[in-house]
Amino acid sequence: MTTLTTSPSAAAAAPGGTPSAYADRAAPAPIPFARLLKVELRKMFDTRSGLWLMASIGILAALASAAVVLWAPDDQVTYETFAAAVGFPMAVLLPVIAVLSVTSEWSQRNGLTTFTLVPHRGRVITAKAAGALVVAVAGMLVAAAVGVVGNLVGSALNGTDAIWDVSVSDFTAIVLANVLGVFLGFMLGAVLRSSPAALVGYLVISFVLVPLTMTLAAAQQWFADIQPWVDWNFTQSQLFEGLPTDGEYWAQLGVTTTVWLLLPLTWGLWRLVRAEVK
């Protein structure tokens, strides 16, 4: 292979006397975190899949309310029934938004743009996490509001007084459960960095694992005894029954969440900030 002359002397000045439009520019201000949060929230909903996810949550919430109004026995037309009916599609779909928010940077490869515009992956991922949190809480508030409307309409149609049987602490517990669900999606996204893999993982954990562990607990007493300490789905789902007050429950939730969510998430993020973006 021939090698032509290398010429450091080629480092002459720019072509004669043209004033540079780019000289002496002040360094721009850093990108504030609030802006990143806004951008990441926007990116959750500005794609076709994001749009349909949002739309389907709204549509399912409305359909669920209508179903309760139409078919629930009169004595069950209470706020709790509405909240549960509306909250279920949310609880299932909100984690999907969190999954896609992380994985699309790799699966759709727009990370190439995202991470060149913000060369601090930790900040971008933190903004995504904050965004997922905002969506989870806002989604629950929307569900609560739809439930209110459903309950008012339903009891008016029945000619009964509306029954408000969801306390603030119940609602807090449900929000917490959903936030945890969203972080399950977030963890799977960060660890797997692939939309199909993370979505399958989410479905397996939420819908395949639950009946399996239930069956196991019913058949084997030893598993039923340790289940609250090892089964995250089990401890998380307790929150939908209301806010537990005993300390042992919170210890169980802490242990299972640390083992199944925090540790893998930490590992996933450690790899994510070092991974090549191609």
């Binding site: 990116k43 500005d46 794609t47 699309s104 759709q108 490869r109 727009n110 990370g111 190439l112 743009t113």
Partner: peptide, 11 residues
């Protein structure tokens, strides 16, 4: 501009 195809296809 490293790869023009690296964009979210749904945007």
């Amino acid at each position: 501009l490293l790869d023009a195809s690296a964009q979210h296809a749904g945007r």
